[in-house]
Write a protein that binds this DNA or RNA. Structure first.
Length: 876
RNA sequence: GGGCGGGUAGUUCAGUGGGAGAACGUCUGCUUGACGCGCAGAAGGUCGUAGGUUCAAUUCCUACCCCGCCCA
């Protein structure tokens, strides 16, 4: 075995072994199921750190539950990602100097499918490199036959139930993507802008109203000015007619509660075709709707002289013209939220348009109840509130997209009588007039419409499959907090509506992976770190371990390369500890290992600590505290197993004259190491498999090894307490040696004075531990017969330590050291004493706390007096 | 404007109603037969500010300040 662990040599090998042997495969049986559906990444995308985190968490849960004996299904798949994928192919075409219109719909879709074939395997291959133990035989795609069938079924049912409708409404139009997007796909960014005050004269020319707006170009579509009905300032003007500057259009002054009298001038221009609030006001007052901006965000013919101008250019010209004609009253700086397209960051144009919507209110109600009643639980709990708040204020969902790549809306329009016919297959003739001139709606559905069905469409719905019956509802959904609204909420809605049952029992939300400076990783910033690069340089295990530790559920995680190095060092530590074990296990025979009666203190101690580790790791996994579970393993392996147990076991293996003791050491070493690898396997699947396979084991893979079960009868409190004493004595001697500059290679003489009989017996029996780990010769005494003249001094757990340093000791230095130590002890002692002197404390604090403080007082007092005595001797 | 998260060692972050932790960095030693991606030792923190509850608050409550995110 090489001295440095090389992940490249083992990771690929084991993944192939697992996959070829179908260890990820899940089949329906009579065990208890544990199922997860993978949040489907973009089919043509590539793995980023967010995926790496999300899938690492899922894999940990999956591997752990599988080892626990659940029938575990982790179902993978990919998403067609409408806008993103289409945009990429269009980009590709643009390089050839073509547009999608040059190809036409059909040819264009062929290109996208070809693109999907070319890049579709990339991300799933990358997930394999991460170690994802999902059932690839069940991999799905949101546009495969089954999922498409589910989409049509859902659309038709909702349509028949009146929960899908087509209507004119203000939608968010992205002039660059050339499609509508839903409300949650709009990102609101606070931007510095101006508030323009514009005077609208009355038609008789005697009066005027000044309105304030941040978007003066929309005035071309104004059809009214609204004031609050209770606003005294404008009461006399309500009902009068105004003349729109620049265009000369006449329009009324209306009163509406919507107006906030305290904002701007208290008078609002109304543009029903380009603002959602104005749209509502317009409906209430039967106002016309005048669209002045077209789909390229260029002013149209309704804009009169401004036709053909880009919206920003138009704004400039309008301001100039208003100013010249005396209508511009003033301009103020004003910060306001501007909607941007989440995909391309273009400023969204609210626009009147006829689209398909899902009526959300009635669907949201059961989804609210399911969470309120605890049938779905969010982890961490605080996300419940975010979810409920959104659900309770839900608005209808605009589901049509002006794209070609996606699930085409299954509705045909009759060109004769305008009837709309919803159907899975193209109807032959109009159900109303019998005409055969039918045309399918050109639009496709929002990508999230199909992902909303993911937990059941992937299991076969609308067919009644055994898988659907067995694995639904899934056990837990693991996803980022950024898509609670996009995805989690909609899955809950559709699961409850179509399956009559929640889609998952728990939702485990994690944060975002940020760069070292705390910024979101993004292409435009170029601050992303490619997980594949990391896997190549540090190994998948290190990446996984780093992503899981030092971070708490739901919180964001900063990516630091130093932490990655730390994880790699940990892997290397495991590797070398195992190397040590394996080098000393060549003649190990588990069958003939001596029983418990042969165990040394160190054996009993490490076995007990291992049990504690089993208990804690399992407990933390149970509560989704994966970072804490990983930390427990890190500390157990590095500190207890490597730094103490291995050191203690060395002499028994190297130059053990006692064959039985050697066999015993081998047995404990092998068993603890194997068990620890099993506990660590969900986190670091590759290195643990490699080591496990080299150790004596049963079964074909660590993946199928039973999860270690906590056995309280193997906890040994006494061994732990006794080891604690020895460890502290050792640490104390090491400290003295280091402080007094005793060369590390030199064996020191140490006198231990122990008055307590039990402790003395303990040290007597295991003095080899102290001699080995503190490099010394120990002389044990019940009391001090003669004060060592030149010696450094220390106290640990009632054990007085003298390290004679004839000729080496600097009395002044030793005095200074002891004084410093005494000061620290006395300070602490004072704190404890004052606590114990407090009547209320004694009366009200729990007895065990009081006992603990008393014990501490005794220990500290003893320590202080020992140091004081020593000081007196040295000074005298 | 509303909500949420964070403010703990030089840095990045865990954690807890009863003696402040880790990693990295720093300092001192070390060819100790698993590992220098290592070993041993050390220094370093009025746990954001001000109140309150409690025998006891870094931890619970209230207000405020700063940073970040989400929603309107």
């Amino acid at each position: 075995m090489p001295t440095i662990y090389d992940p490249r040599a083992v990771e690929e090998k084991w993944y192939r072994y697992w996959e070829e042997n179908k260890f990820f495969r899940a089949e329906v049986d009579d065990r208890e199921p544990f199922s997860i559906v993978m949040p489907p990444p973009n089919v043509t995308g590539q793995l980023h750190m967010g995926h790496a985190l999300d899938n690492t968490l899922q894999d940990i849960l999956t591997r752990w539950r599988r080892m626990q004996g659940y029938n575990t299904l982790w179902l993978p798949g990919t998403d067609h990602a409408g806008i993103a994928t289409q945009a990429k192919v269009e980009e590709q075409l643009a390089k050839e100097g073509k547009s999608k219109y040059d190809l036409g719909r059909e040819k264009f879709l062929e290109r996208v499918w070809a693109w999907k074939e070319q890049y579709g395997g990339r991300i799933t291959h990358q997930l394999r490199r991460l170690g994802a133990s999902c059932d690839w035989d069940r991999e799905r795609f949101t546009m495969d036959e089954g999922c498409s069938e589910a989409v049509k079924e859902v659309f038709l049912r909702l349509y028949e139930q009146g929960l899908i409708y087509r209507d004119y409404y203000i939608v968010n139009w992205c002039p660059r993507c050339h499609t509508t997007i839903s409300d949650i796909e709009v990102e609101h960014l606070d931007k510095p802008g101006q508030l323009y005050y514009i005077k609208y004269p009355t038609s008789d020319g005697r009066d005027a109203i000044t309105v304030a707006t941040t978007r003066p170009e929309t005035m071309l579509g104004d059809v009214a000015v609204a004031v609050h009905p209770g606003d005294e300032r404008y009461r006399h003007l309500v009902g009068k007619t105004l003349v729109l500057p620049l265009l000369g259009r006449e329009m009324p002054v209306i009163a509406d509660e919507y107006v906030d009298p305290s904002f701007g001038t208290g008078a609002v221009k109304i543009t029903p075709a380009h603002d959602p609030n104005d749209f509502e006001v317009g409906r209430r007052h039967n106002l016309p709707q005048v669209r002045v901006i077209n789909k390229d965000a260029v002013m149209n013919e309704e804009a009169g002289p401004y036709q053909g101008l880009d919206r920003w250019e138009c704004r400039k010209r309008i301001i100039k013209d208003l100013n010249e004609q005396g209508y511009l009253v003033k301009v103020e700086d004003h910060n306001h939220a501007v909607g941007h397209c989440y995909r391309c960051n273009t400023v969204i144009e609210p626009m009147l348009s006829r689209q398909w919507f899902v009526r959300m209110k009635p669907l949201a109600e059961p989804a609210i109840q399911a969470v309120k009643e605890g049938r779905i639980r969010f982890v961490p709990e605080r996300f419940t509130k975010i979810y409920l708040n959104w659900m309770e204020n839900i608005r209808d969902w605009c589901i049509s997209r002006q794209l070609w790549w996606g699930h085409r809306i299954p509705v045909w329009y009759c060109r004769n009588c305008e009837e709309a016919i919803a159907a899975k297959e193209p109807p032959r003739k109009c159900t109303c007039c019998g005409s055969t001139r039918l045309e399918q709606d050109p639009d496709v559905l929002d990508t999230w419409f199909s992902s909303a069905l993911w937990p059941f469409s992937t299991l076969g719905w609308p067919e009644k499959t055994p898988e659907l019956d067995y694995y639904y509802p899934t056990s837990v959904l693991v996803t980022g907090r950024d898509i609670i609204f996009f995805w989690v909420a909609r899955m809950i809605v559709s699961g409850l509506h179509f399956m009559r049952e929640v889609p998952f029992r728990e939702v485990f939300i994690h944060g975002l992976v940020l760069d070292a400076l705390g910024r979101k990783m993004s292409k435009s910033l170029g601050n992303g770190v490619d997980p594949i690069d990391v896997i190549e340089s540090h190994g998948a295990d290190s990446l996984r371990f780093m992503l899981v530790t030092g971070n708490t559920p739901g919180n964001d995680l900063r990516f630091h390369f130093e932490r990655l190095d730390g994880a790699r060092n940990f892997a290397n530590k495991i590797w070398n500890a195992s190397r040590f074990a394996l080098m000393n296990l060549q003649d190990y025979d588990p069958a003939s290992a001596p029983g418990r009666e042969a165990h040394t203190l160190a054996d009993r101690w490490i076995l007990s600590r291992y049990q504690a580790c089993v208990q804690e790791v399992t407990r933390f996994l149970d509560s989704y505290e994966l970072g804490e579970a990983a930390r427990v393993l890190y500390e157990f392996i590095w500190d207890e197993f490597c730094d103490w147990y291995i050191e203690l076991v060395k002499p028994r293996l190297y130059r053990g004259q006692d064959a039985r003791d050697r066999a015993c050491a081998q047995d404990v070493l092998a068993r603890v190491l194997r068990g620890t690898m099993e506990l660590l396997h969900p986190f670091m699947p590759f290195i643990t498999e490699e080591i496990w396979q080299r150790l004596p084991h049963q079964g074909r893979t660590i993946m199928q090894a039973p999860w270690p079960v906590y056995r309280p009868e193997l906890r040994d409190e006494r061994a732990e307490a006794e080891m604690a004493v020895l460890m502290e004595v050792i640490r104390s001697i090491r400290h003295i040696r280091s402080e007094m500059n005793v060369p590390p290679g030199k064996t020191a003489d140490v006198i231990l004075v122990v008055t307590d009989g039990h402790t003395r017996d303990l040290i007597q029996e295991w003095s080899s531990y102290i001699q080995g780990l503190a490099r010394c010769r120990v002389q044990l005494k019940p009391e001090l017969d003669r004060v060592p003249p030149q010696a450094a001094h220390g106290v640990a757990r009632g054990v007085e330590i003298y390290v004679p340093l004839a000729g080496l000791i600097d009395i002044d230095r030793e005095l200074a050291r002891l004084k410093k130590e005494l000061a620290a002890v006395e300070k602490e002692l004072k704190r404890v004493e004052s606590k114990l002197g407090n009547e209320s404390f004694l009366a009200k604090a729990p007895a065990e706390v009081v006992e603990k403080e008393k014990a501490r007082e005794k220990e500290l007092a003893g320590k202080a007096s020992a140091i004081r005595e020593r000081l007196a001797v040295l000074a005298g």
